[in-house]
Design a binder for these strands. Structure first.
Lengths: 169, 169
DNA sequence: CCCCGATCGTTTCCATGTAAATTTTCTGGC
DNA sequence: GCCAGAAAATTTACATGGAAACGATCGGGG
C-alpha cells in the first residue's frame, strides 16, 4: 500500500491552494473517494452504484415515471433511457404505458429485478458501512444529516419502510 | 396561474427506498447538485471545475509531478495527461523534464496560466459561496470540517472565518 | 555491462453522463 | 375537428473520466 519515497529530494508539503475551503471541491473529492472504493468491490461493481440506485427507487415507488426518477436522482432523462433499456434487456424492469396519459410510462421491477435488488442493495449497504473513514459514528450521522439538508430531502423518509399500497393491485 | 398537475391521480409520496441512509449515495447526489449549478455558470463552465482545481494545485505547488497531482485530486494519471495536454496547448502550463529522473516531469504555470487562475478561482469561490443551500453558515462550516476529516486532509488551514465552538460533541 | 522488476507517464479503448434536437402525446383556443 | 404550445420520452452527438496495456526510465543483481 504505502511505499517509502524512493528518491525523494526532501519532504515537500503539498497544498491544495485554498480549494479545500470550497464545499463543492470537497464534495467532488469525497465522491471520487467513494467511487474508487465502490468500483473496487466486485459485488457491486458489475451493475454499478448508479444503476443500483435506480432499481432501488423503482422498487420503493412502483409505477414511477421516468421524469420523476431522473428528478430524484439528479440525472438526465437521456441517460435514464439508456439505463432502462439495459434493465429491460436484463429482464429487471417492466415498462407499462399509462392509458390515461400515453406519453408516460410506468416503471416496475420484475420478479428478477426484485431479486437483483435483494442481492445488490445489502452489498451496497455493507460497502457503505465499511467506509466509516476516520469519522466517529456520531460524526457520520451528522454528515448524513447535513447532506440531506443540503439536498433538501427528508433526513430519513424511508427508514420505517412504509408499506403504502404495497402489492395492492 | 397555478401550474397544478392536470391529471394527477393523487399525491404520491416518492421515496428513496433507504438509499438516503448511505453516505455514498448522499455524496453522489450532492456532487451532482454542485455539478449542475457549476456548469450553468458561464464564468467557470468553460474550462470546468476539475481543470480549475488542477491549475490551482499546480500554482500552489510549483514543480509538482503528475503522480502527486493525480494522487491529491483523486484522478487518474491517464486523465491528467489529457488535461495537461490541453493546458499546454492553451499555453497555461509548462512541463520541464527533471534531469535527475528523466521519467518525471515538473509542472509549473506560465504567466498566462497564473492570469487564468487569477480570473477563474475567484469566480469559483463566488459560485461556491452563493450555494449555501438551506444550510446555515455554521452548518456549512461543520459540513466542510466533516468532509475534510472524511477525506483525511487538513481542514482548511487557511479558513478565513474563525473556528467554531461546536467541538466534536 | 545486461537483464529483470518497479515506477512514471502516455496511449487506446470503453463506461458514464450531458446537451440539443426529434417524436409522440396531451391540453387549450378557435 | 384542427392548429399552436407544453410536456414526456427518445435519439444523436459529444464531453468527462477510468481500466488496461504500452513505452521509457531507474535501480539492483548476475
Amino acid at each position: 500500500m504505502d511505499a517509502a519515497p524512493r528518491h525523494d529530494t526532501g519532504i515537500r508539503r503539498r497544498s491544495y491552494g485554498g480549494l479545500t475551503e470550497m464545499s463543492g471541491f470537497l464534495l467532488s473529492l469525497a465522491q471520487a473517494h467513494v467511487y474508487a472504493a465502490d468500483s473496487a468491490n466486485p459485488q457491486i461493481a458489475d451493475p454499478g452504484t448508479a444503476q443500483i440506485s435506480v432499481l432501488a427507487v423503482i422498487r420503493a415507488n412502483p409505477g414511477i415515471r421516468h421524469g420523476e426518477l431522473a428528478d430524484m436522482l439528479l440525472i438526465k432523462l437521456a441517460y435514464l433511457t439508456k439505463l432502462l433499456k439495459g434493465f429491460e434487456a436484463q429482464g429487471w424492469v417492466h415498462r407499462r404505458s399509462n392509458p390515461s396519459d400515453r406519453r408516460t410510462v410506468e416503471l416496475t421491477l420484475t420478479r428478477e429485478g426484485e431479486a437483483a435488488v435483494d442481492r445488490l442493495l445489502p452489498a451496497l449497504r455493507a460497502q457503505d458501512a465499511r467506509r466509516q473513514s476516520g469519522l466517529t459514528p456520531r460524526e457520520m450521522a451528522q454528515l448524513k444529516r447535513l447532506l440531506c439538508k443540503y439536498l433538501d430531502i427528508p433526513a430519513s423518509a424511508t427508514t420505517a419502510s412504509g408499506d403504502d399500497a404495497a402489492g395492492s393491485g
